[in-house]
Design a protein around this nucleic acid. Sequence first.
DNA 1: ATTTAGCAATTGAACGTTCATTCGGTTGCA
DNA 2: TGCAACCGAATGAACGTTCAATTGCTAAAT
Lengths: 192, 192
Amino acid sequence: MNVQLLNKKEAIFESTLKLINEYGFHGTPMSQIAARANVATGTIYHYFSSKDELILELFKYCRERTNDHIFNVDQALSYKEKFFFIWNRLVDYYIANKEVFWFIEQFYSSPYYELIQQKKNPSYYGADRMRLFFEEGIKSGIIRDVSFYTLVSIYIGTATSHVKMVTYGFCKMQAKGREDILEIIWNGVKNQ
Amino acid sequence: MNVQLLNKKEAIFESTLKLINEYGFHGTPMSQIAARANVATGTIYHYFSSKDELILELFKYCRERTNDHIFNVDQALSYKEKFFFIWNRLVDYYIANKEVFWFIEQFYSSPYYELIQQKKNPSYYGADRMRLFFEEGIKSGIIRDVSFYTLVSIYIGTATSHVKMVTYGFCKMQAKGREDILEIIWNGVKNQ
DNA sequence: ATTTAGCAATTGAACGTTCATTCGGTTGCA
DNA sequence: TGCAACCGAATGAACGTTCAATTGCTAAAT
């Protein structure tokens, strides 16, 4: 990542992200997180009360950054254009930031995610903007009136699945595959 | 291999599956796997050379069982019917066997999966039947001629995404949501 | 039919390592 | 002067793995 790290907290985040991507939750000791971030082990505990909290905070950090990025969209575009644009932005972002993608995927598949749900902390939920975006399409009659989670399964499910294929190396990152997916899901959800 | 051996091995598999589902890869010690399977810790090492090998074998075991189940389909059905049937079977199987689903998800998102890819062991790849099924639809002109991985993103991506929503408790396991998803992706992939 | 040899299966305490966390001390800045 | 930031060796618990000992089973030998 080419970003100039402004503080130690972000250095710790970036270090954790890379190590977890490489060795998984289990295989990344605090000592190595510290080493890669050029801080002492104890320093991490100045910012985070435990390893679990570090991982929870990192998840929030990743999700906020991702959401801020993908929903930064020109409101002058037509709904169809926005539908395509946001999907492509999400895929681009994840492919350019593989560590973020794999960390989020690992997190969602792990028991950590239940911890967050138990807390019932609204700031953990990042679905608000997605919900608004789909509601906009439904209310204006452009896309079919189906439930939010149905649309998420189709829109986000295909995007993450596609990113997995590409980062696994199964298929090349080529425009054709993306266009096909987008055309297919758009044909499926549009009203007519 | 006699019956007794299979029983112990399967008991270890089932125990591992449940514990990993509950505590994650990192949070499940061999001692607990043994306890839940009613065997001694050392016994596990009679069947598996290490914890990593146990997890790799368990992954193969889960994937084989899942594939055997979902592709057990009446060939007399029309292609569209099979398309709907297999998708529903996959979703049903995962919802009825949540530990299998979450284990596979965790595995795919973890660095373990790269280990398997490095081995280049064909027995690890379970995509053959899926590929044949899509080819059947393309050759007969029923579904659009797009790449295998595009179809996987749409077909499997939406299925796993839907299972996640349901097992997270975001949406009820009701017929409506499924029908909507299937109708949308079928509208998208069918020819013209 | 009984004995016996030998190997497979099983046990769980012990071992050595790794790791998250702590803490007493140091640095740097306001 | 005071306080936050920072350090890293020390601590103790947890964990994967080993191993010497025990049991159970099978089949050949008597």
